[in-house]
Amino acid sequence: MALSQIGIGSDVAADITRARLTGKRADVSGTAFRTALQIGLSLSVIVLVVLLADVLTGGWSVLTTRLGEFLTAPLRANPAQAGIAQSLAGTLWTGMVVVLLSFPIGIGAAIYLEEYAPQNRLTRFIEVNVRNLAGVPSVVYGILGFTIFVQWSGGFTGGRTALAGGLTLACLVLPIVIITSSEAIRSVPRAIREGGYGVGATQWEIIRTFVLPYAAPGILTGTVLSLARALGEAAPLILVGAVQGRLASQDPIWDPAWLTERFTAMPVTVADWATRPEEGFVANTAAAIVVLLAIVLLFNLGSILLRNRYERKRHR
């Protein structure tokens, strides 16, 4: 079959040629190597499947019998009545702060670094700095958030509030937004820019009408992935003071009053419930994980599909 195709890979050609020249057909150690690789890769996929199956079966009883109550009830000490409404609100509002702050600042920084920045020491310093920030462990951002947003600017954020948590997460994902947006902008072909200059457009006109629309899918993918990353983070929020246990505020989920109140978030609740001794919280934890995964993986999958779709369009 391979021979009938035009342009077979050089590896296939090598195999066929070797078989013809030596008269030997089987490549035992080669097949063993290939199988070992396949086993390694399948193991990773199997782990993913087992994990998903484990949380789904664990949370099944809660998700099927009292999903509505689970999503709308507040955190309670009684596992049979506890819900995640307050955690969802915290995740929503911290996520909102991330979107409103880190996206514009991150994309702005990427445009500056790729389009305007002169090749000097300041630019190089900023670039190295961004790369190193991306590798700082998330707990350390928690210390940043606690010191800066809770202690220093507590008058503005109100202390250990969703606003302080959101600001911390915004700092956490900012370097990721800058890096992915920079990559997307860098991948815009030179010819597109030169075409713009050829018809007399200014630099900003070119960026606005050619570069950004071309880079938009890449930027969108990167920003959505970083939002998913932010929504799954528990460690920095715990250091900032997300509540483990019960929470007083019972505002409706869409009420912006959440921003200046004590808060918790989905991953924090999962971590809290996972270490509770009561039997009933085992199923609750699994159910909360299913909801958290649904949110995070929806963003992830969405951005992956988006990227694949645009990639295929480009190559056509």
Binding site: G232, E233, P267, A271, V296
Partner: peptide, 17 residues
């Protein structure tokens, strides 16, 4: 995408797992 999905799983979830 399967590997990327694995990358997107929050660490709390892996902790409970």
């Amino acid at each position: 995408p399967a590997l990327e999905t694995l990358a997107g799983i929050p660490s709390v979830v892996l902790g409970v797992f």
